[in-house]
């Protein structure tokens, strides 16, 4: 009898903690829609911040633009080194000593707090190279931050390609680079794209690294590399922290979360597509 009660309690614990995850996500989304939804209209999306203090009226257009510039730049900087490192790990190094070390370094890099990356880029780009607080510095910081994400996801996508393709190509005398380019890569491209999307989403939400390297309270975000930019997450922080406008803070948070969930869902469907490809 006592056993049955314990079992029931345990079952309760498992169910509660499982459902709690769902409840938290739903609560966040519903609450943001409830508080922020009424303030989102075309003006909010397409206008610059206005009113006094700045941000009480108008919209968040420069922040949206700035975030897009930042993640684009981060991707441009990190994609080639990221993909080549992944290709090395999956196709060239495999289980060699160097690959082992690189794997370890990449894994440790993934664990480095984003504020530390901001600190590094602040010293290197903002101060030493004289870029100042700028789009370029922010893009570099975010690129360093997403590099391990790109490496790990692309490496795993490449490794998941059936080994027989490599063996057959090799036995037919096809060169390694041709095999990679024409056989392996096309079969992993959905998974790699999913990883890139996740990296983009990760970069779009990051605040700490751009707070010290790129972000300004107000800027036109024209895309000039050496100018500071506005960014959605930093704008949200400022709106709340400087007590400018709670309504606009909720609306900004909703736009940001909406954007990220969209990217996330896209990435998830691409990776399930990849799983289907791998099974064939």
């Amino acid at each position: 009898m006592k056993k049955a009660i314990t079992d029931q309690l345990l079952l309760g614990w498992f169910w509660v903690s499982g459902l709690l995850i769902l409840v938290i996500l739903l609560a966040i989304i519903i609450y943001l829609i409830w508080r922020g939804g009424p303030f989102i209209n075309s003006g909010f999306i397409l206008e610059s911040p206005g009113g006094f203090p700045l941000g009480t009226e108008g919209g968040i257009f420069p922040a949206i633009k700035g975030t897009l510039w930042l993640i684009l730049l981060a991707l441009v900087i990190s994609i080639v080194p990221g993909l080549l490192t992944a290709i090395y790990l999956s196709e060239y190094g495999r289980s060699g000593r160097l690959a082992e070390i690189i794997n370890l370094l990449v894994q440790s890099m993934a664990g480095i707090p984003s504020i530390i990356i901001g600190l590094f880029v602040y010293a290197l780009g903002v101060v030493t190279l004289g870029w100042g607080i700028s789009l370029l510095a922010g893009g570099l910081a975010l690129a360093i931050m997403v590099f391990p994400v790109i490496v790990v996801s692309s490496r795993d996508a490449l490794l998941a390609v059936d080994e027989n393709y490599r063996l057959v190509a090799n036995s037919l005398g096809v060169s390694k680079s041709y095999t990679l380019y024409r056989v392996i890569f096309p079969r992993a491209v959905a998974g790699i794209t999913a990883g890139l999307l996740l990296a983009l989403g990760y970069a779009a939400g990051a605040t700490a690294p751009i707070m010290v390297t790129a972000a300004a309270v107000i800027a036109s975000s024209s895309g000039a590399l050496l100018e500071p930019v506005m960014a959605l997450p930093y704008h949200l922080y400022i709106l709340f922290n400087e007590h400018i406008s709670m309504n606009h803070a909720y609306a900004t948070a909703l736009v940001l979360v909406g954007l990220l969930l969209f990217i996330n869902i896209l990435a998830l469907s691409l990776s399930s597509l990849q799983e289907r490809i791998n099974r064939h």
Partner: peptide
């Protein structure tokens, strides 16, 4: 239910820390 929960966990990691901080501070 598991098929719903797994993507949910993924999405929770996708929400940026500034939003968690904002909701925590505001609510």
């Amino acid at each position: 239910l598991a098929a719903i929960l797994r993507p949910v966990i993924n999405m929770l990691t996708g929400i940026p820390s500034v939003v968690y901080g904002f909701l925590g501070a505001a609510v």
